[in-house]
Simulated scan of single mutants.
Amino acid sequence: MTNPDLLLPSDDGLLPGAGSIGAMLRAASGQEPVLIGKPSAILMDYALRDLGLAAEDAWVIGDNLATDIAAGKAAGCGTVLVLTGLTTADNFEAYAEQAGCRPDAVCGDLHELRSYISAFIRR
């Protein structure tokens, strides 16, 4: 299974994600799927090795605490949450508790992310 996302945001509201399909297959087969994508570190570690990067030299940017940020944390990378997806300012605390992790930085939107990256690069 690539990721456990039950829901994905779209212009028309939330849609079923890969986790919904995985839950259906788990229920039908009685077998636990192998998770290779977020929040597992398997693909993250592979990408870091392939790029020749140490985890501490890479940042994971995403809009979902339970998958994107949890994957970055599992791989030992820095993390930035952008509040443009499933995780919002209103549900942040509940999702952080549910995910068991917190990002290193939070940006409200992509413009704020761009400013954050620009400021980070100038250091």
Rank of each mutant, 00 (worst) to 15 (best):
T2F: 13
D5G: 11
L6F: 12
D11E: 14
D12L: 03
L15H: 06
P16G: 10
G17K: 10
A18E: 04
G19W: 01
I21W: 10
A23P: 00
L25S: 02
L25M: 13
A28F: 13
S29Y: 01
S29R: 06
G30N: 14
Q31L: 15
E32K: 12
P33E: 11
P33H: 13
I36F: 11
I36M: 09
G37T: 07
K38R: 09
K38W: 00
P39L: 09
L43H: 00
L43Y: 07
D45T: 07
Y46A: 12
A47R: 03
A47F: 14
R49W: 05
G52S: 11
A54W: 06
A58Q: 04
W59S: 11
V60F: 08
G62K: 06
G62W: 00
L65M: 13
L65S: 07
T67R: 00
T67A: 01
I69E: 06
A71K: 06
G76H: 11
L81N: 02
L81T: 04
V82H: 01
L83H: 06
L83Q: 14
T84C: 04
G85R: 03
G85P: 01
A89I: 08
N91E: 06
E93V: 13
E93M: 09
Y95Q: 15
Y95I: 13
E97Y: 14
G108P: 06
D109V: 13
D109R: 07
H111S: 07
E112F: 04
L113Q: 10
R114L: 15
Y116G: 06
I117K: 02
I117F: 00
S118A: 13
I121T: 05
